[in-house]
Amino acid sequence: MASAAGHILQVKDLVAGYIRDLPILHGVSVYVDRGEIVTIIGPNGAGKSTLIKAVAGLVSVSQGSIELNGKNIVNVPAYQRATQGVGYVPQTGNVFTTLSIHENLIMGGASLHRGKAERRIEELYEIYPVLKSRRREKAGVLSGGQRQILAVARALLTQPDLILLDEPTAGLSPKAAAELFALIRDLSGDGVAVLIVEQNAKAALRNSDRGYVLAEGENRIDGAAHTLLADKEIGEIFLGMRRDTPLEKEEA
């Protein structure tokens, strides 16, 4: 859907926060291209979650722009952004625990026509058979990893161009986290743009194309994921590691 040259998501000089006059982001710029996985890292309080919520429409923006496929969506209400191509998986409360798995997916397709939504749900059941076999169970009984899969599936119902994932591997076992990253890579293989916020910076960057480091609500460093992984300064300042320790030795 995106023009060949344009970015799927382009955030420019964003000033945003939960309360007016008390911004948490002081001019952040980020872009994500089609089929690209981009990770945002940074210390606590850097504004990572705020950025992703601003793109999802849950945080009020006072300055700057958020362009989706070249169209500024700053004034579009959150529920319409879902229709226009943004899928968002929040960090906590990412599924409706009191609804069944099937009903969770119906929620994801709330903005689609009934027939279209039903077709999409069947398609997603094909991709994630674990959901189909447990469709009548309440989402509250799922494990953390299964909830993430359900949450991603719910966000995919509208076939978004962009998926936002807030700390997707928090609380997951290494195995479940690895499975989730595999799923995310599949998505990008299908052309979806993926924007991830992660505490687990190493694992996320290893699975990403590019990364941004935020601090105190501003851009600090950005670049290719493997460059960031090798950067000593990042390990030291932003992730509290011993001086001169890169996140990871650059893989040859």
Binding site: G17, Y18, I19, L22, I24, N44, G45, G47, K48, S49, T50
Partner: peptide, 11 residues
């Protein structure tokens, strides 16, 4: 006043 409570919402 901007209450402290409001500020504690920040991430």
């Amino acid at each position: 006043q901007v209450s402290r409570h409001a500020r504690s919402l920040n991430d």
